[in-house]
Each structure stands twice: as C-alpha cells, then as structure tokens.
C-alpha cells in the first residue's frame, strides 16, 4: 500500500506544499501514509449526513405529517361516534383491531393507529424513502460526487440502509406519539384490558405499546431492503419510488386472495399484524417470530442483491 504512496515521487507538488495565507494548513500532503488512513468514526459521519438528507427534505416531513394525522382523524371520529354513549362498531365487526376499546382507554388509539397504518400508509412512506435513496441521488447526479469523494459504495449503501431503517423507526414513533397525545387528551386512560381478557396496569400497557412500536418498525425491514434494491436498479428516483410502492400494493393484494394461500407465508406483509399478539397474556410469540424471521430473510436476500448490483454498476448519471 505504502509503496505507491512513495512513488508519488519528486514532482512539482511534493516539493512545494504552497501554503497560501488564510488557507487551512495542508494536513495531508505530502503526508506519511498513516495520516491518510480513514477515520474510524467517518462511517458514522456519513450516516449522520444521510439522516440530515432524509429528514431535511420537505417530502419526508410531509409523509411524517400525514402519518401523524391518521391518529388525529381516528381519534376525532371515535370521539364523535361515542359522544352519546354508543360504542364503536357495536356489532363487533369491521374496522382495524382495537378500535372499540379506544373510548374506554386512550392508549388503545396507539394500537388502533398502528393497525390502521401498517397495511399501507407506513409501508408507502418507507417505499418512497427507500426507493428514492440511491436512485434519487443518481437522477440528480449527486451520486457521482459522493462516489468520487469517495464515500465507498458498500459504506454508502450501508449508510443509506441504516438511514431508511431509522426512518422506519421515526415513522412508527410519529404514529405512536401522535396517537398517545390525541388518545390521552380525548379519552380516559387507565388499566389496560388485554385481548385475552386479563387486565394489566397502565405502565405494563405502555411497555407493551413500546414493544409493539418496535415490532411494527421491524416489520418494515424487509420492505426497506426491497426498496433499496429497486433503487439501485434505476437512475430515476420517481421510478424507483413508484415501483416499490406498486410492488407493495401488489403483494398486499396477493396476500388477501385466498386462492393464493400457498404463496402467502413467503410474502413480507403476511405476518405484519402479528404484533397484536403482544396484547395477550401470556404473549403468543409464534407469529411475531415468524414475522421477524421473514423480515430478516428479505433483508438478507435483497440487501445482498442491492450490494451486488450497486458495487458493480457503472454510474453514468
């Protein structure tokens, strides 16, 4: 490694560091190889920079705004519906899970909102952010400047995936926090009656709520990897976003056609609603674990595919 460093040899440059007044000291040239070793923390720096890029975009804030609006809508609707002492969906059918408990306990608005957003709203937001991650940079041309910086293809991809996963957590938390604020201000709050009929304390209920938020965020790992992979295939940010969201809708439809039940256990959204099992005592882990295993499988397969594609592709945009 250092051999070639020294063969940079005698040249105009090495002989003349050429400091200019007011210019920062030339810390790297003609420098011993040691000072050129990349800093250990720089991957974190790149990740931080990725996060800024994701969260400073107006589109991201709009997506989070929409997600924050869902619990508000659900909360107000339930509040209006139950004003005269009626219960929601009195026949016990229809609507997302947990809906009928909201008027008794505001905490259930968080569970109901997650159940309402998980099939489409949340994954659509993830699809937009993941689909845009690489392709968006390619279409604006900023990708080539990141690569000649040089960010390093593998590291850039990892930083991108990490920032998409962070967005998954942030999006889930936005739904939960908005639901908690709305639920606690519109409805009574108290001990939590679980799906299995037992009652636990509010603090136990909140802990279960946090676990559910974590599981919902984890449910999006597979889709995030899929979106990232699609994003490495094209130079069009819009195209990658549309393809990812389109794929999500297709998969959700297939997941609801009974005749295709043989396929369904392999579809990434198949076990998404398993998070409701946390609201039982004892918790039933089978579906939850199947969901996590499936998400990690998707992440491994499509993460590798994204890596294989991105590290070998010609960047011509």
């Amino acid at each position: 490694m250092s051999r070639a460093e020294t063969t940079a040899g005698p040249g105009l440059h090495d002989g003349d560091p050429g400091h200019r007044p007011g210019e920062p000291v030339r810390e790297r040239a003609p420098a011993p190889p040691a000072s050129r070793t990349p800093r250990a923390a720089w991957s974190l720096g790149l990740f931080g920079s990725e996060l800024l890029i994701v969260f400073r975009r107006a589109r991201t804030l709009a997506l989070l705004g929409v997600l924050a609006g869902v619990p508000v809508l659900v909360g107000i609707a339930v509040r209006i519906e139950t004003r005269g002492g009626h219960s929601v969906g009195g026949d016990g059918g229809g609507g997302p899970a947990f809906l009928e408990q909201i008027s008794n306990n505001g905490l259930f608005l968080a569970f109901a909102s997650l159940a309402a957003t998980l099939p489409f709203f949340l994954p659509m937001a993830i699809g937009v952010v993941a689909g845009d991650s690489v392709a968006g940079e390619a279409s604006t041309g900023t990708l080539r400047y990141l690569l000649v910086a040089p960010a390093g293809r593998t590291r850039l991809l990892l930083a991108k995936y990490a920032s998409v996963l962070t967005f998954c957590v942030a999006a889930t938390l936005v739904v939960v926090l908005s639901a908690v604020v709305v639920g606690f201000s519109l409805f009574p709050v108290g001990d939590v009656t679980l799906l299995s009929g037992n009652t636990v304390s509010l603090s136990d209920g909140i802990l279960r709520g946090l676990l559910i938020a974590l599981l919902v965020a984890s449910s999006l790992i597979g889709l995030a990897a899929l979106g990232l992979f699609i994003s490495t295939l094209t130079d069009s940010g819009i195209g990658a976003m549309a393809a990812t969201v389109g794929l999500l809708i297709t998969v959700q439809i297939i997941n609801n056609i009974p005749q295709l039940h043989a396929l369904q256990p392999y579809l990434f959204p198949h076990y998404w609603l398993s998070f409701a099992d946390v609201m039982r005592a004892p918790v039933i882990w089978t579906g939850i674990l199947k969901n996590l295993a499936l998400q990690f499988l998707y992440a491994a397969v499509f993460g590798s595919a994204a890596w294989a594609r991105f590290t070998t592709r010609d960047v011509t945009a």
């Binding site: 790297r28 050129r36 990349p38 990141l146």
Partner: peptide, 8 residues
C-alpha cells in the same frame, strides 16, 4: 454533505 462523504 460532500465533505462528510470523504473518509479522510
């Protein structure tokens, strides 16, 4: 942003 992408 571009400077953050440079490992050195």
């Amino acid at each position: 942003r571009y400077d953050a992408a440079d490992p050195t």
